[in-house]
Design a protein around this nucleic acid. Structure first.
Length: 487
DNA sequence: TTGAATGAAAT
DNA sequence: ATTTCATTCAA
């Protein structure tokens, strides 16, 4: 395999995560890393971790420690193995955490929509009978060197039902666009500069409507949240550039993130501020301990009411669908109104366009309120656990070894916190400490301080990051961020 | 490495 | 219009 392209993540050698987190200073002291991490170099928020990622994050260091000779990739296999052999009940814990994390993320960035880097190289599926005719053309794609891959078992389980839609609305207006991750950019707000760009509707991009389940659309991350530069310009400047190569493995001590702009003027150099290395936050703190012990059940309570509904009225959403041509950037055109049929129900939030109604309008502001159901019922991390799959070496997931985690329970901190962001109170906790509401983080998971692991103190998953948006006065995260000095 | 989400192809 | 696949990207 070898893909050259260098995908950011694949880079085994310099795992991004690896070192980052270790930094003692960061952890203990002040500033720290926790905060930074939330954003990508280009200012867009990082995607929330899924269940496995949360699991891996916690477990990897241990496994790694025990098998020092192993490479990251090997460790991953072990982790994978553990994951697969883990009982559902045990996984549930992570699933729940992931879910909360996701909800929190969504609340925080209601309009965010993930956009993968456009990949021009994709191969067309289904060559088979099809003939090669096309082959000729293949030149463009040519890249693919190794088609094989087979992998990805389709997941027999039904676990997920995804429906997806297609879409793409953004056409590339610029030659480059295609390479960039974010759709257009340029214009509309381009200069938004700060602040509230989307106070009002935002929908400009509406792009998303898609009638599908996919979540909402959001223009592109950049704008709303990011403050200063238009993505495009960034790209031009090349700081990061998506993909492919950049590896700034950490490095940089950490520049003073000055910009942020929101409030005051700051800003100064656009570049310096946000992007930057990310360090990883530590795991979310785990508060709930004892709670429901029973492992399995129990956690289901989530009612996800949250989502705010919104949907009900969607006007018309349109576009998105037609990809091809389109062109229009603006997007909002109307087009047909088919709202989507009731056929499928929107998964969660789905409000492409601004839903408008008050609440969300201010995106950020509302966030807090939106708090989805705080479920928090962290089950014991690994309760029973299965046998150790791979015997070699260490303890299986369940075993006690997890330093950070108490298997049993113990944590006392208030589990009950509320919504992810909850901390609404001004008392901003410095980057999410575990105890209080973490900025965004879920409360669970982290090493309970009791154990006092090295860094145990903070954790929080700090997703919050506040992006700089200047927006509201109220943003919770804004506070912590401030405190943190990030800005 | 798993899994969520996307974007485009296939149906 | 919906489903499926390939790809990205989270750590």
């Amino acid at each position: 395999m070898v893909h050259f392209t260098t995908s950011p993540q694949s880079d085994a050698d310099s795992p991004v995560f690896n070192d980052v987190d270790l930094d003692p200073d960061a952890a203990g002291g002040d500033a720290n890393a926790l905060t930074s991490q939330t954003l990508n170099t280009d200012g867009t928020p990082k995607r929330p971790m899924n269940a496995f990622m949360i699991f891996a994050r916690r477990r990897r260091p241990q496994v790694s420690a025990e098998n020092q000779s192993m490479r990251t990739g090997d460790i991953s296999k072990i982790l994978s193995h553990e994951w697969k052999s883990m009982l559902p009940a045990d996984k549930q814990f992570y699933l729940t955490q992931a879910k909360q994390l996701k909800e929190a993320f969504n609340s925080k960035y209601p309009d965010y929509v993930y956009r993968r880097r456009p990949n021009n190289t994709r191969k067309r599926r289904k060559p088979d009978s099809a003939t090669p005719s096309s082959a000729g053309a293949n030149t463009s794609d040519g890249v693919e060197s190794s088609p094989d891959a087979e992998d990805a078992p389709p997941l027999p389980n039904s676990a997920h039902s995804h429906s997806s839609g297609s879409s793409s609305s953004h056409s590339h207006r610029y030659p480059f666009d295609s390479t960039h991750r974010y759709p257009s950019s340029s214009s509309p707000y381009g200069s938004g500069f700060g602040a509230s760009s989307y106070g009002s509707s935002s929908s400009m991009y509406s792009g998303g409507g898609s009638g599908h389940a996919r979540t909402s659309s959001y223009p592109y991350p950049g704008d709303g949240y990011r403050t200063y530069e238009s993505p495009r310009s960034q790209l031009l400047n090349a700081t990061y550039f998506p993909p492919y190569d950049n590896n700034h493995h950490h490095s940089v001590p950490s520049p003073p993130p000055s910009s942020h702009l929101g409030g005051t003027g700051g800003s100064s150099s656009p570049n310096s501020g946000l992007r930057k290395a990310q360090s990883i936050p530590s795991l979310p703190s785990f508060t709930g301990g004892p709670c429901s012990s029973s492992g399995s059940q129990a956690m289901h309570s989530h009612h996800h009411s949250a989502s705010s509904s919104s949907s009900s009225s969607h006007p018309s959403y349109s576009h998105y669908g037609n990809n091809s041509s389109s062109s229009s950037t603006s997007a909002n055109s109307s087009s047909t109104s088919t709202p989507h049929p009731a056929t499928y129900s929107p998964p969660t939030r789905y409000s492409p366009y601004a839903s408008t109604p008050s609440a969300s309008s201010s995106a950020s502001t509302s966030a807090a309120s939106a708090s989805p159901a705080p479920v928090y019922s962290p089950g014991p991390p690994f309760t029973s656990v299965s046998p150790a799959p791979y015997s070699s070496a260490n303890s299986p997931p369940g075993s006690a070894s997890l330093p950070g985690f108490p298997t049993s329970s113990s944590s006392s901190s208030s589990a009950s916190s509320q919504s992810p962001f909850s901390s609404s109170t001004p008392s901003y906790t410095p980057r999410s400490l575990s105890g209080g509401g973490s900025a965004l983080g879920l409360s669970g998971l982290g090493p309970p301080s009791g154990g006092g692991g090295p860094g145990s103190g903070l954790n929080g998953l700090g997703m919050g990051g506040g992006i700089g948006v200047g927006v509201g006065p109220a943003d919770p995260e804004f506070f912590w961020r401030t405190d943190n000095k990030l800005l």
